[in-house]
Design a protein around this nucleic acid. Structure first.
Lengths: 127, 127
DNA sequence: TTGTAATTACGAATCTTTTCGTATATACTT
DNA sequence: AAGTATATACGAAAAGATTCGTAATTACAA
């Protein structure tokens, strides 16, 4: 699987959140954050299509694009790489940095605790 | 602070682990993983020096390079960016992915629990 | 059918990062 | 001092990612 670039990731993000979309829609969404030309977005999505990151179908004169890679798989892949280069593969270090530097609610902390418990149970069972 | 590129990060990693080093040493370390020419490494380190990422001092005919940015600060910076682009800023999601997809020992899980407890206590006290 | 607006296709310019060839300088050995 | 090995300096090529101008296409309305 090819690692999506930053620009590609922004587009995937919108497709994951909103489902199949036209170039026009994606470009409108991107434009709320930064200035970006329509053909720029179009070109990027065409490249992603060639790479196999997106599928598309015609609807009249426009194309409807669809993400072919899942959010979860992509996040896992990016995380693996990031963990290696920035944290030498130590998930624990990263986790502590992430929790320490960013606000997390009590509810979220509890959810993480439950998650840790499950994790431990499953590890004991083997796997 | 300028975000280090991937190549720069690899060099910083070695400097953080081994302390002040020559280009030769860095290049040898890099070469264990992948093929990389000596002048390539040299050039990269010269650029990092110009950017202010590294300091250097002469020792005979060679330079000894030293990281000017700390591992912690750099990790925090990279993590912030990564969290935004890949996980929409949700530290919890990232944490769960990280723990779920990578092996973590029971000891490490316990350490994280203690960390969570501390975090909560300090939050109650008001930041 | 003709004109208009919006879309796609394509190629090239720009920008960033990485790689490396070549020239020059420095220290050491004989 | 001359020769050799290793270092640095510099510039430019190569590779990757992003941006955008322009032309061709399509759908629709007058």
């Amino acid at each position: 699987m090819t690692k999506p670039t930053n620009g590609e990731l922004e587009i995937l993000r919108i497709l994951w959140d909103h489902g199949p979309s036209t170039v026009r829609f994606i470009n409108d969404q991107l434009s709320t954050d930064k200035e970006v030309g329509y053909t720029t977005t179009l070109k990027l999505m065409q490249i992603m299509y060639e790479k196999g990151l997106l599928e598309r179908s015609r609807d009249g004169k426009t194309h409807i694009y669809l993400a072919l890679v899942s959010e979860e798989d992509t996040q896992r892949q990016l995380l693996d790489r990031f963990l290696d280069t920035a944290f030498q593969g130590s998930a624990m270090k990263l986790v502590m940095q992430a929790l320490g530097n960013h606000h997390t609610t009590t509810e979220e902390l509890d959810e993480i605790r439950r998650f840790l418990d499950d994790l431990e149970k499953n590890q004991q069972k083997g796997v």
